[in-house]
Amino acid sequence: MTNAQRTTNLVAVILPFVAFVVAIVLLWNRLVGWHDLVLLVVMYVPTALGITVGFHRLLTHRAFQTSKGVERTFAVLGSMAVQGPVVNWVADHRQHHAHTDEEGDPHSPHAGFAGGGIKGTLRGLFHAHVGWMLTHEGGETRSKYAPDLLEDPGMSWLSRNFHLMVLVSLAIPAIAGYLITGRVTGALTGLLWGGLVRIFLLHHVTWSINSICHFFGSRRFDVEDKSTNVAWLALASMGEAWHHNHHAFPRSAQHGLKPWERAMDPSAMVIAALERLGLVWNVVRITPERQLEKLVPPVGRRQPVA
C-alpha cells in the first residue's frame, strides 16, 4: 500500500470519528435541530442498502438479477457510503469468502492471531475492524476476484470516479440542511449529521460484521469458518449481522432464515419488494430442506461414509 493510499484511508477513518465527537458535544449542548437527525436517518438507510443490497448481495454474490439501471443505482448508493470504490469492495469481499478465517482473508480476526491470548485477540479484532484497511490494498486482487466488474464499463467508471460519489454524499445533506433552515449553520449541521456522523456510524456497523460477527454470537450450521449471527446488530446492519447464515449459504438473498430473523433483515425485504414490482428476478432463496441438511449434527449422530 502506498503512503497516499494509507493516508486516504486514515482520513476516511479519523475524520468521521472526529465529526462524531463534535456531534455528541453539540447534542449534549442541544445545538442540534430535528432536521439534523432526520437527515441522519434519511441518508443512512439508502446508503446502507447500497452496501448491503447493492455491493454485497447483488454485485458480490449475484443473489438476484436486475436491470443495469437498478444495478447502477445501488452501486451509486453504495459508493456514497464511502467504503471504497465498488470494484475494490467486491474484490475484497470475494477474497474474504475464498479464504474465510484463513491465510489470505483480508480482514479475519483469527488468521495470523491464533494463540496470542488476550493481546492476540484484541489485535485480531482491531485488524478485522479497521486495521486491515491500513495494510491491505485491493487493487492487485481486482482482476482475480472482480473481473466481471472490471469488464463492465459502467462499473469501472463508477469505481474510478468514487471521489465524485463521496462529494455528492456530503453535498446532499449540506444542501438539504440549508434549504430546510435557510441558514448556513443549517448546512453545516446537515453536513455534520447527515454526512460525517452518518458515515461514521455506517462504517463501524459494516466493520463490525468483519470483527464481531467472526468472534461473538451464535452458530447452527456446519461450516468450517468462525462466522456468527449477532441479533442485536441485525437491524442497524440491514440484516447483514445474520452473518453465519450468510456464510452457510453465500448466494442467498435472505440472510435472516428463521421467521424472526427475516423480520430483522431489511435488505431482504427491499429485495422482495423490488421483486413484486418486477424490478428484480431470479431471487435466490434457500429451502427449509437445504437448511436442515446443513445444520450441525447432534452429538453422537454418525455421519454417512462417502
Rank of each mutant, 00 (worst) to 15 (best):
L196I: 05
L192I: 05
K226Q: 14
L37A: 03
D152A: 05
R30C: 08
L257N: 00
G138W: 07
A174H: 03
L125M: 14
W260C: 04
R262W: 11
H99K: 13
P304L: 14
L170P: 09
L77Q: 08
L58E: 01
E102P: 11
I175S: 03
D105V: 15
L167R: 00
S156E: 09
L274K: 01
V168Y: 04
N3D: 15
L164M: 06
V41Q: 00
R30V: 06
Y44M: 07
G239N: 09
E102D: 05
D36N: 14
M269T: 06
F17M: 13
R30S: 08
V284G: 00
H96K: 13
R183Y: 10
H246M: 05
Y178I: 08
W132S: 08
R62C: 01
L179C: 01
N161F: 10
K68P: 06
A234L: 12
H247F: 11
R6T: 13
L37E: 03
R285H: 13
H246T: 09
L31D: 04
V21L: 13
C213T: 13
N3G: 15
D36R: 11
H61G: 04
R62M: 04
V53A: 04
R142D: 04
E275Q: 14
H61Y: 10
T189W: 02
L77C: 12
A253G: 09
T206D: 02
M133K: 15
M269K: 11
D105F: 15
E293L: 15
S108E: 08
E140Q: 11
F162W: 07
A75L: 13
T228G: 12
E275W: 13
L149D: 03
Q291S: 08
L274D: 00
